[in-house]
Design a protein around this nucleic acid. Structure first.
Length: 714
DNA sequence: TTAGGGTTAG
């Protein structure tokens, strides 16, 4: 075991509990989880008594293979099964006298040795001629083929097949050789052709060839199966991938480690964590020592699931087996730790990687930039960028774009401008649509509307495509500056360029409506919104009509929310409440907040413990937060009046406003507290929190003259 | 691409 991995393991396992805030789990130290340390590991790795590996007597199906383990693996909610994990059920594989049948062959399939072919040069040149000829004409292809400089021996045919691309030509050649009847077509010819077809993602053709092999009694080996399976995977035909894997066992072909890890990746990409773990466990119990590729697959899967326990399990396994991460595993681990919300661990792992002499590549740095951006660690991000330049670490356009996006998220305008200039002056990283979108985002969220418009004009001039995200950024900042004419122009141009408005853009237009001070402007924006989502505009009219009954409102609102993307539902509700308040329809705003609450848009808005009641408005807009405060004060007032029990402490959270969307919420909330003469004050020790005691609330409720702001509710 | 498996952008 080399030092660096030990360091990371120490970090992850012996990290002091002060780091607990990074963990979403209450217990930082390993709980008995879905990743049990197997008893089998002990004998599998023991040099004294290696397990006797037997070929299965019969060929069990995959589901049979998986069955015994799936019962030992804990599903997340099945806490009642925890006992199973502490004491694994009696399983043959913990008993060395009765080893579990092997699920994979520990011997990788051998390749036939590659003999030197003196005709290689001629044939390569000839293949190039075929590759360069008109792809659409089979006649031309066959005409050239007549000029083949050497006889089609087995070796020559293989060399040609390997050199022909694209897949259409390889397939033509393969079929042609078959018709010549010079020698029997063995497995290798099918394998090479299938690989070529895989580049073209031609799964149906591959499957056709595989069936032809079966029909002609040509052996399908591990290379055949892994090619079929990975092609299915690349074509997103996961059922097919699993079907062919099952077929291997049924026909008595034992997968080797290459096929096995390809299948692990199939299940991983399907998000079937338990199946992956089951296969992994079974493989390990068969004596398999997973390699970097298998670990990379597991890491990626746990990263996608944001599953920190899983990532630790992988690290533990690597440590146990003495596998030191390579560059790709490091990259996958960094990405996974970022997704699991562990920026500190990702940073330490990166340092460990560099210290161990592994040079980061573009993907490493992209992963780390994303980690820091997500964590809002400006300082670390900028230091990293500085280090990249000092060390001459590799940059590519994805890394540039990721850095630009991060600058936009963190409000680093100057740095973004510098990067953008660098890109313009570079040879290979010319700014593309993504880069321009990031710049629109930089200026848009920084309120630099003129600069944003300059970027927009530059895009039009250079023919850089505007995408929905750039359009949304631009409309948002034009709306905030009340430049409605330009907003409408940008909207029109975007529609002309084929942008299909989505719910985010509608939410953005809705928020602009809530900011409009005059009816004319509001109507212009509603005109745009009406083209994207007419139901929303009709709903706003409904809010305006005095006669609209609550039940009608509820039904129509339900339709709007059902049609909307989940992420956009709360912003819709927030904006609609803001619009109501802007139009002096406060009561409607209260109705909408109530509906939003019963439709589950504001979970955690109210929290009650014996000692404290709190209101958390962090996910609310200013208008919605005001509405929620009024609602709360009214109900507290009623409780005082009814002389019901109250806790010692009351708190209202607005958050500290570090996120760009929540800026200004704390101050707007504070001024509304003042307007209502509510007895809350900023907490000294809790950031972004207003507090009041029971006595404060009681004396406020008893002494207050009904506030105009609250009368509507009384 | 030289018979098979893993990692980068809202």
């Amino acid at each position: 075991m080399s030092a660096p991995l030990t360091m990371s393991m120490d970090l992850l396992y012996n990290m002091n509990v002060s780091n607990v805030s990074e963990s979403k789990h209450p217990n930082f130290f390993p709980k008995i989880s879905r990743y049990p340390i197997r008893k089998s590991t002990i004998f599998c790795n023991s040099s004294k008594s290696p397990p006797k590996l037997e070929e299965p007597q019969k060929n069990p199906s995959l589901s049979d293979q998986l069955k015994p383990l799936s019962t030992t693996i804990l599903s997340e909610n099945a806490k009642d099964k925890a006992q199973l994990l502490i004491k694994p059920p009696k399983s043959t594989w913990v008993n060395p006298t009765k080893p579990k049948p092997s699920v994979l062959s520990l011997q990788r399939q051998k390749r036939s040795p590659y003999a030197y072919n003196p005709q290689i040069r001629d044939l390569k040149l000839f293949a190039k001629k075929l590759n360069d000829c008109d792809s659409t004409s089979e006649e031309t292809f066959f005409a050239i083929l007549e000029e083949i400089p050497h006889p089609i021996t087995k070796e020559n045919a293989l060399l040609m097949l390997n050199s022909l691309k694209p897949w259409e030509k390889a397939l033509l050649f393969f079929n042609w050789v078959k018709t010549q009847n010079l020698f029997p077509m063995e497995t290798i010819y099918y394998n090479v052709t299938m690989k070529s077809l895989r580049f073209g993602r031609q799964f149906e053709l591959i499957e056709g060839l595989a069936n032809e092999m079966i029909g002609n009694n040509i052996e399908l080996d591990n290379i055949t199966y892994s090619t079929i399976i990975t092609c299915a995977k690349r074509c997103n035909l996961f059922d097919k991938a699993v079907e062919w894997f099952e077929r291997m066992y049924k026909t008595g072909v034992m997968p080797d480690e290459v096929t096995y890890s390809a299948v692990l990746d199939v299940y991983a990409k399907l998000g079937k964590v338990e199946e992956v773990m089951s296969l992994y466990e079974r493989g390990r119990a068969s004596g398999w020592k997973p390699d970097h590729i298998a670990f990379s697959v597991l890491c990626k899967m746990f990263g996608e699931a944001g599953d920190y326990d899983g990532i630790r399990f992988v690290l533990q396994e690597m440590k146990t087996l003495g596998v030191q991460p390579n560059l790709i595993v490091y990259n996958t681990l960094l990405e996974a730790l970022g997704k699991a919300g562990k920026p500190g661990l990702a940073r330490s792992l990166f340092e460990e990687m560099v210290d161990s002499g592994v040079t980061p590549n573009e993907k490493t740095l992209t992963a780390l930039v994303k980690v820091y951006g997500r964590a809002r660690w400006n300082k670390d991000a900028l230091e990293l960028w500085e280090r990249m330049r000092l060390n001459g670490w590799p940059m590519d356009f994805i890394l540039y774009n990721t850095l630009l996006s991060m600058c936009a998220d963190l409000g680093l305008e100057e740095e973004a401008e510098k990067l953008f200039e660098d890109m313009k002056n570079s040879k290979y990283c010319i700014p593309d649509s993504f880069s321009y979108t990031a710049m629109l985002n930089v200026y848009g969220s920084g309120g630099k509307v003129d600069r944003a418009m300059e970027v927009f004009e530059e895009m039009s001039k250079k023919g850089v495509e505007l995408n929905i995200m750039g359009c949304t950024c631009l409309i948002q900042c034009l709306g905030k500056s009340q430049r409605i004419d330009e907003l409408v122009r940008v909207f029109e141009v975007s529609m002309q360029r084929g942008i299909k408005p989505d719910d985010r853009l509608c939410g953005c237009l809705l928020s602009v409506v809530s900011l409009c001070d005059n009816t004319e402007d509001a109507n212009m924006v509603l005109g745009c919104l009406g083209r994207a989502n007419p139901k929303l505009v009709a709903f706003i009219s409904l809010l305006n009509e005095e006669g609209t009954k609550f039940d009608r409102l509820k039904e129509e609102f339900k339709v709007i929310l059902t049609d909307a993307q989940v992420d956009s539902r709360r912003p819709f509700c927030n904006c609609l409440i803001d619009i109501c308040r802007k139009r002096n329809l406060k009561e409607r705003g209260h109705e909408l907040l109530y509906l939003g609450t019963i439709f589950g848009l504001y979970p955690g808005l109210h929290k009650k413990t014996t000692g404290e009641w709190s209101l958390n408005v962090r996910s609310l807009s200013v208008g919605a937060a005001h509405t929620a405060l009024e609602e709360w004060m009214t109900s507290l007032s009623n409780i005082v009046e009814r002389e019901e029990a109250l806790p010692e402490l009351f708190s209202a959270y607005t958050g500290a406003g570090t996120h760009k969307f929540s800026q200004g919420l704390a101050s707007a909330f504070a001024s509304h507290i003042e307007k209502l003469a509510a007895p809350f004050r900023l907490s000294e020790d809790r950031v972004g929190c207003f507090v009041a005691t029971r006595d404060d609330i009681v004396s406020w409720a008893q002494s207050r003259v009904p506030s105009p702001a609250l009368t509507v509710l009384n």
